[in-house]
């Protein structure tokens, strides 16, 4: 069965069939052909415990369960759509409201950012206004992300750490440590900073997805 197909930079077509069910963000279905069913879902494949965890975490984006036989086109508000393929137990870290659609076969989790990068992770969530929790997708399958402007994929290697504006950060995958750094003297942080006071430093082996904008969704 063919996978996710980017129709335009802002639309993706997803085949639906037996064994090929997906969860999608509500209100993001643009069109469909065939016999396809949409059911509101508050658990998004995580079960009740997961849903509770998500509710506590504030990572609560309304999702729906899409089943049947046919194909569905997804998109949202003119935002760019980027398809990401996961394989071999890869984990993608992404804010819930940037998830447009993902295979039901992917394991969904919620992670407290403090687990990664210590106190820096906590501040990162606070700074970028994303809350302290992020959604994780693990397994073999596809997902599609929403970004403001086309997304840039930046490879990170141990020799080549990357610094990202927390507002422009979209998602990352691989074995990456993230931590919040400051590239300016403390004096500059008080009052009239350059706007780049905090930066998210990603070190390790993986990929970070960056959007050319500071706008949230």
């Amino acid at each position: 069965m063919p996978g996710y197909q980017s129709i335009t930079s802002k639309m993706v077509r997803v085949p639906i069939g037996p064994g090929q069910e997906v969860y999608s963000r509500r209100g993001a279905m643009l069109a469909y052909t065939g016999r396809v069913h949409f059911a509101p879902s508050t658990t998004a494949g995580q079960g009740i415990a997961g849903a509770l965890g998500r509710a506590v975490a504030g990572e609560r984006t309304e999702m729906m369960h899409v089943t049947g036989q046919g194909s569905v086109m997804f998109g949202k508000a003119g935002l760019h759509v980027t398809v990401v393929e996961l394989s071999g137990g890869d984990t993608l870290y992404v804010e819930a409201d940037r998830l447009l659609v993902h295979d039901a076969s992917l394991r969904v989790g919620t992670m407290f950012l403090g687990e990664q990068g210590g106190i820096g992770g906590v501040i990162r969530g606070a700074v970028s206004g994303q809350g302290l929790f992020t959604t994780t997708l693990t397994g073999d399958g596809s997902c599609a992300l929403l970004t403001h402007g086309g997304v840039m994929e930046m490879p990170v290697t141990p020799q080549r750490p990357v610094h990202v504006d927390p507002q422009a950060y979209v998602a990352h995958r691989g074995r990456l440590q993230n931590k919040l750094t400051t590239a300016v003297g403390l004096r500059d942080l008080i009052g009239r900073g350059s706007g780049e006071a905090f930066q998210l430093q990603l070190v390790g082996d993986g990929v970070v997805y960056v959007q050319p904008s500071e706008r949230k969704i």
Partner: peptide, 13 residues
């Protein structure tokens, strides 16, 4: 505020 990302060593003033 226009810096989105960088690699290498940068200072912002």
């Amino acid at each position: 505020g226009s810096m989105v990302a960088y690699d290498g060593r940068m200072t912002f003033k």
